[in-house]
Write a protein that binds this DNA or RNA. Structure first.
Lengths: 199, 199
DNA sequence: AGGAAAGTCGAGTAATTGCTCGGATATCTT
DNA sequence: AAGATATCCGAGCAATTACTCGACTTTCCT
């Protein structure tokens, strides 16, 4: 759903040097997260972010060139969290699939509303290079982990499997599916599809 | 993701009596659809809707009490389209599942960008009673059609199956999965999951 | 200590947007 | 034809929002 024609800035206009400035940047990103969790995307405006973060609006614009840059920073922060969990899974391990699913579930349920809102926002955002690279990393890692259980797969089948898992985990995160046996449900869906396709 | 505290209005403030007024209402809804397709949710504002619809802003507010009411009307229009297709499938038919999947795919690909944007918007919208009823109808019909092939299912499993189908069809609508063999892919995923669960 | 660099502040501005209102035009009814 | 009703118009208001700028404060360095 690309519609914003991707502006040039997006990168911090000034990088923080002192530790209190680093804390300020973190507070701003966390402020955005809290607003999204509490009131959704429509309530996310720069004045509110600054207020919730406990800094002035001028300070915010010292580090982030525009509103979208704050969002991108938040998405990077969340992606890094998931990426770390995925990286911690030993390549080719017997329980790789289970570990991957468990990591996704943990990530989704750590801050369910935030994850749900970001999931939506990511679709309509032109991300910067770094954030896009992280998305690719996540996709590639997931694909590798799938391969250890199901062997080599067509790219479309790998994407479909990841898709299925995300749909189920997201819905459970919204509270529409029970959290118990969630991992089993996801694995049943993934392997049900892949076993059907791989003949 | 409920955050807008659901206002009272949402219903047309005046119902059109003359045929040209009915055409005006339809033009307004279609104008909103065109803006969403062309430029996404951020570009959807009432002034633009009126302009694209070829009516004045005052006329828009004659029939729709606020911006959201136009969106709800659009969602109703699109849901009615899908609902008609589902209703046309004979209950308990041998090919009921295939017909259902085909209908979903047709609906998604008729106006892919519109379907994708509305899918997102529906989540963060407090719908009116009528639109909510249509959503339930679609869910119930889908569940019934699933039952003719797979027998009685737990509600969570029905939801999961529908979820899986929607995730795949939506992604294909976004152009990330090929349209060819899409129906087979969806059916493989659904039956893969349900056969795994139903033991 | 004291100057420079980094950081913070918040009132204010320009633009956008949802929506109103009073008046003009079209259609219906008799 | 002529009133009554329905429909349409669009300038403009009030509120919101993204963002700037110049002044003030804190931290760093020697």
């Amino acid at each position: 759903m690309p519609q914003t024609p991707s502006q040039t800035p997006v990168e911090p206009r000034k990088i923080p040097r002192q530790s209190r400035a680093i804390a300020t940047c973190a507070a701003i990103v966390e402020g955005a997260a809290r607003i999204l969790e509490a009131s959704g995307p429509e309530a996310l405006n720069t004045n509110a972010i600054a207020e919730v973060a406990g800094v002035s609006i001028g300070t915010l614009y010292q580090y982030y060139p525009d509103k979208q840059a704050v969002l991108v920073a938040l998405i990077r922060r969340e992606r890094a969290l998931l990426l770390d969990e995925l990286h911690a899974i030993p390549h080719g391990a017997a329980q790789a699939l289970e570990a991957m699913v468990a990591a996704s579930i943990r990530h989704q349920f750590a801050r369910p509303r935030l994850a749900a809102v970001l999931e939506i926002l990511e679709k309509s955002l032109s991300l910067d290079a770094e954030a896009a690279r992280m998305a690719e990393d996540i996709a590639r890692l997931s694909a590798d982990l799938l391969a250890t259980r199901f062997g080599p797969l067509a790219p479309d089948d790998r994407l479909t499997a990841v898709l299925i898992a995300r749909a189920i985990v997201n819905t459970a995160g919204d509270g529409l599916l029970p959290q118990e046996h969630l991992a089993e449900r996801v694995i049943a869906a993934i392997s049900g599809y892949l076993d059907n396709v791989r003949r």
